[in-house]
Design a protein around this nucleic acid. Structure first.
Length: 315
RNA sequence: AGACAAAGAGA
């Protein structure tokens, strides 16, 4: 079963869920009974392919034959329902596992909290948060980050800082994800100066932030027309020896295009490729879109060919 | 020795 888990996971990760199902079906004839690890892998694989209903059916069938799922298996299914937005079904699984004597853990609660936050139901997420604390399950950084994101999306930015304090009071340290959620929320709600100040304060405290934070900042600056700040940001990062990734380069190229600096945008493209960073369909689309607007239907021809030559499939 | 949760770019 160890071998099978590894194999199934490999197939699922490669998007070969169909093949994984076939291998799974061969386990019994092969004399190897699927265990909890195998089931969680299959459930996760099916859910990742958008086949959550099948994952659920697979489990139900196995349980009918006496299989007893553990918390990891249930978590995989709950996560599947959360990511398709079927929150009530997720809650159904959550309640079902408890009635079968399986206690939810941090991940279970965090998945549900994240699901509710993403669909704008922060209140229910907060209820779950209280429930988990009551049940003696300690929230972790991921839990708090999800809640912070939920409150951010609702525009409750003041509440967010309360959550941050609550989190630190329980001995948890916000991480890069936490900061990226915060800064992105500040940016997307138009509070760019606050985001800039916050970012600056992090840097001064010696806290490392990553590409995601810089991309949020870059995106916001470009969309607000603050091109000089955007270029300065890019320049500063490069001076600090930071190598921007595909997202960051793309958002800067987007800014240059909006500013009308097409040739500089093209230079950035060369620059990223020189740095060994892959340009993808998004990157090329930004340039193609601008070239179309500037030069009409023949404008993007060269760049389109470059994209094809680079082996990038248009989407 | 194997399985599950949170963040950023274009149309």
């Amino acid at each position: 079963a160890f071998t099978y888990t590894a194999l199934l996971q490999g197939l699922c990760d490669a998007g070969m869920v169909h093949e994984a199902m076939a291998v799974f079906a061969w386990m019994r004839p092969d004399g190897c009974a699927p265990d909890q690890h195998v089931y969680s892998t299959m459930v996760h694989g099916l859910c990742g392919a958008g086949r959550t209903g099948e994952a659920d059916a697979l489990l139900t069938e196995a349980m009918g034959e006496g299989f007893v799922p553990n918390v990891v298996v249930y978590n995989a299914l709950i996560d599947g329902y959360c990511s398709t937005g079927d929150l009530e079904l997720a809650v159904g699984v959550f309640e079902g596992m408890q009635s079968k004597g399986c206690s939810p853990n941090v991940r279970t609660y965090t998945e549900l909290i994240c699901g509710f936050c993403k669909s704008g139901k922060v209140e229910r997420a907060m209820v779950l948060y209280s429930q988990m604390v009551e049940a003696g399950v300690a929230p972790n950084v991921v839990t708090y980050t999800a809640l912070i994101q939920g409150q951010c999306n609702m525009g409750h930015l003041e509440f967010v800082f309360r959550l941050l304090h609550l989190m630190e009071a329980s001995g948890l340290v916000p991480n890069e994800w936490t900061f990226s959620v915060l800064i992105d929320a500040l940016c997307k709600s138009g509070r760019i100066e606050e985001a800039q100040q916050f970012l600056e304060s992090l840097v001064q405290k010696g806290i490392k932030v990553n590409q995601v934070v810089y991309t949020s900042m870059m995106d916001a600056l470009c969309k607000a027309g603050k091109f000089d700040d955007a270029h300065t940001l890019m320049h500063k990062m490069v001076m600090e020896g930071f190598v921007p990734d595909t997202h960051l380069y793309s958002s800067h190229i987007y800014g240059l295009c909006r500013e009308g600096k097409l040739s500089e945008a093209m230079l950035q493209l060369d620059d990223m490729i020189d740095n060994g960073i892959q340009a993808n369909a998004v990157t090329y689309t930004i340039l193609i879109d601008k070239l179309l607007r500037e030069f009409g239907s023949d404008g993007p021809k060269q760049i389109f060919d470059r994209m094809i030559v680079a082996g990038i499939k248009p989407d």
